[in-house]
Amino acid sequence: MDDLTAVREFEADVAPLTGDARFAARARLRRAIVREGRPGDLSRRLMLRVAVVGTATAAVAGGAVVAGRHHGDGGADGSRMGTLSAAELLHKAAARSRADSAGTPIPRDDQYVYTKMFITRTYVKGGKRRTWTDESWMSVDGSKPSRRQEYGKVHRDPPLGKHQVMWPPTEYAELAQWPTEPDELLQRLRMGKGGDDRMAFVNAVQFFVVPRAMPPGLEAATFEAVALIPGVRTDREAVDALGRQGVAVSYPTFDFAFLFDTKTYAYLGLNVDGGTGEMVDGRMRLRDRYHELRARQETGVVDRIGQRP
């Protein structure tokens, strides 16, 4: 069976994919081909990984796939955020990000980005709840091995250039070349002329899925770029994995969202719905659907793996 046939047969035992899911799958494959630079040399493992991630519309980790639709209605709840539009909220979040990062020293190439993430997952059937505290140490310039946790499992990543395609990049020096002007950044997130706003939103989320050191102004510019996307909306009844009250910002039909603090506008994490997936006879089967909350607890730059800020 060829790779594209395997991808098409993902649908065989699940509900038909939405247009957004198909779009995201194509976007993932297109990014991989662009980054690889040799379309004919893409491995089966990479192609299937890209297709599954695209179908999930966010990320795959340990067989988990994200799918579905977000149902926030954007209604006011009487709080100070009740009168803010999604774009206004994102601009305030950008201002908070710039304030928090002011004066932060530029990391050295030989250092590591430390990230601590708390994750809760509640399964739709039965209400079972699982939690993880993931810590990661990512090489700033990608020249050293990194140690990354996903749902409690430790991954020892080789230096960049020796593992699979990753986009957006994680190397600090490469990200430092990205524009911090919102209009220019939005075009980069759209992947040029062939992309659109849905692709831009997916790529903006990817900045926060895999730990990385963000150069000054890039995180803030990402929020401002998302603010330029028509149709982004808010859900003012969101709560993060640590129980903090927040407001979620999402794109219609995508079931993942940025979450911001209701009082400080600080970025808190991501909320997603999904399910575990597995390949059976070349086909993707989805089961055990869940609601997942991902809270960013701490970030910093350290000198060695195992060290904390």
Rank of each mutant, 00 (worst) to 15 (best):
R8H: 10
E9A: 13
E11P: 02
A12Q: 13
P16I: 06
T18S: 15
D20C: 00
R22H: 11
F23W: 08
P39I: 07
P39L: 08
G40D: 10
G40H: 02
R44F: 09
R45K: 14
R45F: 11
R49S: 14
A56F: 10
V60K: 06
A61V: 12
A61Y: 04
H70K: 01
G75L: 08
A76F: 00
G82W: 02
L84C: 02
L89K: 04
R96E: 07
R98I: 05
P105M: 07
I106T: 14
P107C: 09
R108W: 03
D109W: 08
Y112S: 09
Y112T: 09
Y114F: 15
Y123P: 04
Y123F: 15
G126Q: 09
K128Y: 06
T131H: 11
T133I: 14
D141W: 05
D141K: 09
G142E: 07
S143V: 10
K144N: 09
R148W: 14
E150F: 14
Y151P: 01
Y151A: 09
Y151I: 01
G152A: 05
K153G: 00
R156A: 13
L160W: 03
M166I: 14
W167F: 15
P169M: 02
P179L: 08
E181K: 14
D183V: 10
D183R: 15
Q187S: 11
L189K: 06
R190Q: 13
G194M: 03
A204Y: 04
F207M: 12
V209A: 03
V210T: 12
P211W: 07
P215S: 06
P215M: 01
E219N: 00
A220S: 12
A220T: 03
T222Q: 05
F223E: 06
E224A: 12
V226K: 06
P230Q: 10
R236G: 05
A238Q: 00
L242P: 02
R244V: 13
V247N: 00
S250M: 04
T253P: 04
A257E: 14
F258D: 05
K263H: 13
Y267S: 03
G269Q: 07
N271W: 12
T276L: 10
M279C: 03
G282A: 08
L286C: 07
Y290K: 00
H291C: 03
L293K: 15
A295S: 15
G300H: 13
R304F: 00
I305H: 06
P309A: 13
